[in-house]
Design a binder for these strands. Sequence first.
DNA 1: CCTTAAACTTTGCGCGCGTAAAAATTTGAT
DNA 2: ATCAAATTTTTACGCGCGCAAAGTTTAAGG
Lengths: 357, 357
Amino acid sequence: MEEREKLHENQRGPLLMSDVRIRNMDEFAVVCGISRPTISKYFNDPHSVRDSTRKKIEIALEKYDYRPNVFAMNQNRKLTKNVGIVVPYLADPFFAEIARNMEQRCLDHGFQPTLYSAHGQKQLEIDILDGLRSLKPAGVLLAPLGRDSDVSFVEKFCRDVPTVLFDSMVHGLDEPYVGSDNPQFARMMVEYLCRDGEPPCFFEMESPANPNAVKRRNAYLEAMRYFGHEPQIIQAKGQGWSFEEVGRLGGLAALEAKAFATNTVLCSNDRLAIGFMSACFEKGFTIGRTEEAAIRIAGQDDHPFSRFTCPPMTTVAQDYESISHHALETLFRVIDGAKKPSKDKLFGGKLIQRASA
Amino acid sequence: MEEREKLHENQRGPLLMSDVRIRNMDEFAVVCGISRPTISKYFNDPHSVRDSTRKKIEIALEKYDYRPNVFAMNQNRKLTKNVGIVVPYLADPFFAEIARNMEQRCLDHGFQPTLYSAHGQKQLEIDILDGLRSLKPAGVLLAPLGRDSDVSFVEKFCRDVPTVLFDSMVHGLDEPYVGSDNPQFARMMVEYLCRDGEPPCFFEMESPANPNAVKRRNAYLEAMRYFGHEPQIIQAKGQGWSFEEVGRLGGLAALEAKAFATNTVLCSNDRLAIGFMSACFEKGFTIGRTEEAAIRIAGQDDHPFSRFTCPPMTTVAQDYESISHHALETLFRVIDGAKKPSKDKLFGGKLIQRASA
DNA sequence: CCTTAAACTTTGCGCGCGTAAAAATTTGAT
DNA sequence: ATCAAATTTTTACGCGCGCAAAGTTTAAGG
């Protein structure tokens, strides 16, 4: 009691930040004039203590730059405040952008986000999830590699850690999923292209890692039949995540073979379209929806760079905001224990009409 | 002794992975037949124990999926095996790419990389460094925001944590720095452009956050004088990290004002150039080095998308490999204590001649 | 003023591992 | 075989905090 009073007295004295260094929560509790368990409670959730108590602690926090030891905090806690965000390929600005959005939302809710990229590698995705598990995260937002993912491993991971999948589903996984309504993307674009000119061919990768590509292809086929046109699919050889290069090479090959039955091409995604546009330029085909243009090209995703292509790309915009918002809402709900069997949530896209189609 | 013998016996029996769950290092030591401190030493550095001992441990690791508790491990350790990688803007594929490279090298050297992006925000950079400090990282690779960085804060951080700066220097900071020889970039490109056609104007952001931009501008000025040409600098209004949009809007304004004295424009960086190319297209200016083209445009950086612009962009390639390699070598040297006053290391760029200039 | 629930304090244990020191063992070379 | 050096074992303590239980204080409502 005596020592406590003394230190407590100092608090009102001319004590500078650097004068006393708080070594642990016990010492901090003393200078606060509050017991350690309450301090502990405060750091776990600031609003779990009385207003007057919180105020006292926060005043002390201004004075001393104490911060609880992260490792000691998390050691004896079943669940931390960490949230893992895992994407398949961070060099794709789409993922960078949506990850940024999610990070921000985590911080706003008092969680500590950590970003990981599998860089398109199966083994790295496994290693990331493996390492993540030992961080005892409160939850994980996972955009899997897709076809390349180790399904049984991901499944096992999801059993241990509250996980919300986004962007790409994994077949046979029962976790909550938030993403885009890919069939709607393709349908909408096919309808627009048919209304505005010749019906589109469909340009895609031969064996896409991302299952969304399959949905888009099927939706294209359906939509074309619905409108009474003959569908045509052209596949670019190649694999991996260098979509632009695959699109360029595949585009060159297709153009040389005069493979396109119409003057309109709907690409499976914007990055592929960027590569294809490059191929068209190389071959001297002018792109656009004007009379003098030779070919119309449309993409899907509204990639951050798509508005700067020449010409600017007509595409379907993913609803970044809604996806990240809903993904985190879902995750928080799962974390809070109300394990609602929240079904998949899909968001529609918006047609972005630019000059390319 | 008795219990140990018993468990040790089990090891040779028909024991499956899932049969026994190892709860901590003590139990794992028992099934290894090795004392805990040695096990601890192994996990700290596998090559610090005798070969025969390592073998025994690794055999046991195959059998039981024990992994030491990350939090307990790091609690009493002054330095962890964590390495922080901090970039100013991850949605820029240049940073995504170099971060990927650095991550891989960390893993190869037995470190645990964690990636952070300040997303162009000063406060976020501070928060990231602040949080990083409490993770007791072995070292940090920091590409600062630049002009927007809180210099005194970064300085204080560097005093506490072994740090290697890359990409962008912070004025008045004495830490080891690894980056590109930006003046050489501009010099080389000016020389090429002058040799191949009209001398270039210089297109840049009004008040760039990145100090490299200033170096490139000054190098442009110098080179132009050296070659006996009148330099001309055109500035795009705007700030932030949406370089493409700034370049497009600034480009439109400049083109409308007929501001360019020659038919050749050297942009401060590729992203600005991508935006400027978009503006040129919009205004009907054909880009390229052929006779019929109206304007030549060159960039700097060799951004991952620059080879897919229409036309493909002539630029100067940053030496990703060398930068990330040298940055990590330097960091490891600093971590190992040999605090050599390693001076800054700059790498030259390579001229990438494509169709745009 | 009394009643009660909520918030806080006190006490004390335990987590899983780092680490130090001294003793015991193994290794490798003479 | 001999001996020093390298490695491992034994023993023991401490890190900083989570967490639980029981007692005490505070705040709110009638």
